[in-house]
C-alpha cells in the first residue's frame, strides 16, 4: 500500500509541472480557458455553460427539446416553497441569504477566513437550518437539491464570481482541489482531466465527454438517469452527487458529499469557470 502511495505521489509530481500546478490561480484560469476556447474555436465562451451540448450538435437538439419545458421546473417550484416556508422559529432561509435579490449562487463556494475552510452553497443551506433549530438535510438529492435548484434558478444571469484569497490556508484548499482534478485515480486510472480536459468532445463508448469549462455553472442538474432510478421521478442532484458518480465510474471509492476533498475540488472547478454566466439548474441525460 505504501508503495502505491509513493508511486502515486511520484506520478503527481511528474504531472504537476505539466499541468502547471504552480500556485497561481489567475494564470491557471487563463490557461484552462484558453485550452477550451482553442480546442473548440467555434464555440462562444458563454456557450460552454451548456456542457456537452456546446460541443455536440446531435444531442443539443434533444436537449433543446427538453429545455422547451424542462422537468427541473417541478423541483424549482418545490425549492421555492421550501425556501419561503418559515422555520419553527418563524424565520426563513432569507434570513441567512439576505442578498437573494442580487443572486446567491455565483458567490459560492468561498473561503471563510475565520473558519479556515471552504463554504459551499449546500453547506451554507444546512448551516442556516442548524442556526434556526432545524435538522440538516442530506447533501446529494431530495430537498437539498430542490433548494439548490431554486437558488440556482434565481441566480441565473449572474457571472461566476468565486474569489480565491491568497492566504496559505485558502491556497491549500485550492491546491487540493486542483490536485484532485488532475490526479489519476481508481482501477481505470483516470483523472477528471483525462476525460473532461484532455478528451473533452471525444467519445467514451457511446457518450461524448463534456468540457470541464462551464461544468459548475449549470448545477444542480436534473438527470434523466437519476429520474429513472427514483420512484417519484425526482432526478435532481447536487454537484457532489455527480462527483461521487464520476469517481465511481473510474472505479475509485467516492468521497463523501461535502467532504474536504469535494469542497476543495468544487473550489478549484468553480473558479475555473469564473466569468461564465449562471444557468442552473440544468437538464442532462
Amino acid at each position: 500500500m505504501k508503495k502505491v502511495a509513493v508511486i502515486v505521489s511520484a506520478l503527481c509530481m511528474l504531472i504537476a509541472p505539466l499541468a502547471g500546478i504552480a500556485a497561481n490561480p489567475d494564470q491557471d484560469l487563463k490557461n484552462f480557458r484558453k485550452h477550451f476556447t482553442e480546442k473548440f474555436s467555434s464555440v462562444p465562451l458563454q456557450d460552454f455553460t451548456n456542457g456537452v451540448y456546446s460541443v455536440d450538435k446531435a444531442s443539443r437538439e434533444q436537449w433543446e427539446a427538453f429545455e422547451d419545458f424542462p422537468p427541473y421546473e417541478i423541483f424549482v417550484d418545490k425549492g421555492n416553497v421550501l425556501f419561503n416556508k418559515a422555520f419553527k422559529n418563524g424565520k426563513t432561509y432569507a434570513s441567512c441569504f439576505p442578498k437573494a435579490k442580487k443572486g446567491i449562487k455565483q458567490n459560492y463556494p468561498f473561503f471563510d477566513k475565520k473558519r479556515g475552510e471552504v463554504v459551499t452553497l449546500e453547506l451554507a443551506i444546512n448551516e442556516c437550518r442548524k442556526k434556526n433549530g432545524e435538522k440538516p438535510l442530506k447533501y446529494k438529492k431530495g430537498k437539498m437539491a430542490h433548494l439548490s435548484a431554486y437558488i440556482a434558478y434565481k441566480s441565473r444571469g449572474h457571472k461566476g464570481n468565486v474569489k480565491i484569497t491568497s492566504t496559505p490556508e485558502s491556497m491549500a484548499w485550492y491546491d487540493r482541489g486542483k490536485k484532485h482534478f488532475y490526479a489519476k485515480r481508481g482501477q481505470l486510472n483516470m483523472s477528471c482531466a483525462d476525460c473532461h480536459y484532455y478528451n473533452a468532445g471525444n467519445k467514451i463508448r457511446a457518450d461524448i465527454l463534456s468540457p470541464a469549462l462551464g461544468h459548475t455553472s449549470h448545477f444542480p442538474v436534473y438527470r434523466n438517469k437519476w429520474s429513472l432510478a427514483s420512484a417519484s421521478g425526482d432526478g435532481m442532484g447536487t454537484l457532489h452527487r455527480r462527483y461521487g458518480g464520476c469517481n465511481k465510474q473510474v472505479r475509485a471509492k467516492p468521497f463523501k458529499a461535502q467532504s474536504k476533498e469535494y469542497r476543495s475540488l468544487e473550489y478549484f472547478h468553480t473558479f475555473m469557470s469564473n466569468g461564465l454566466t449562471m444557468n442552473g439548474p440544468g437538464i442532462r441525460k
Binding site: C195, R205, A206, D207, K225, C246, Q249, K285
Partner: peptide, 8 residues
Amino acid sequence: VTIGGCGG
C-alpha cells in the same frame, strides 16, 4: 438507442 459509457 445506445448503451452509454459514463453518462448513461
